[in-house]
Nucleic acid binder design. Structure first.
Lengths: 116, 116
DNA sequence: CCACTACATCACGATATAGTAATACTCAAG
DNA sequence: CTTGAGTATTACTATATCGTGATGTAGTGG
């Protein structure tokens, strides 16, 4: 669809509904437990039991957070027998985390004991 | 379908404390009101009264959210007489929002394809 | 000094979400 | 069919935070 000729200097404005959707996505990433799960999945799919061990979270908690991540479209799963293998379905999520990490490192460059 | 692990590009690991800090930053961006404020500031500094009008939020609410944004280092302010002019102090924040918006649009078009 | 404006902060009720423990579901083996 | 393992879901409590209204504070003009 052709756009009307305009300076096009400013970026597209988001409606309130759009803002709400964006906020919701950020919210999904605003929990350490979910970030932990995403990081555990960063190197490939894992089944739930493995995630429980990798993260140290309880079973119910892991399941709940995986559900939230899945509803947000950030991870997906495949079932195989008794196991459920989860994997990151949207690699852009990792880019977001990287950007945020980069900013953090920048801010805490002197106090970088939290990074390795 | 599961995807293969990433090309082993990310070697940096976050400690629990680091995760907590990243999560906190995402949380700051997880409120529509704050995103609204950031968008209003995208075009340049604004004083509080202008932000109140631009966003439609109440005065106390605007002040509180600006405080949160400032504590997160995303905005800063300069005082001039009775007015307080706020401005975005970290342009990377806008990149984050853009990335998230891009993902939203992407998901939206993907989903709408399922609606025949 | 007084009053007014612009903004910040406090106190509070309402809502949302994390974590936990218990329970329910599902599949595979025997 | 029964059992048990692996996950999902539910019910619940505790905590956090939003939005609001009231109050506090700092500049400015009369």
């Amino acid at each position: 669809m052709p756009r009307p000729a305009r300076p096009a200097k400013r970026k597209k404005k988001l409606s309130d509904r759009g803002l709400q959707l964006v906020a919701r996505r950020f919210k999904v990433l605003s929990e350490p437990a979910r970030l932990k799960l995403l990081m555990a999945l960063e190197q490939g799919e894992q089944h739930v039991s493995a995630l429980i061990e990798l993260t140290g979270l309880t079973q119910g908690n892991v399941s709940k957070h995986l559900g939230i991540l899945m509803e947000a479209g950030m991870v997906d799963r495949r079932k195989q027998g008794l196991n459920a293998f989860y994997f990151i379905s949207d690699q852009q999520i990792l880019d977001l985390c990287d950007l945020m990490c980069a900013k953090l490192e920048q801010d805490f460059s002197k106090n970088s004991a939290h990074f390795r």
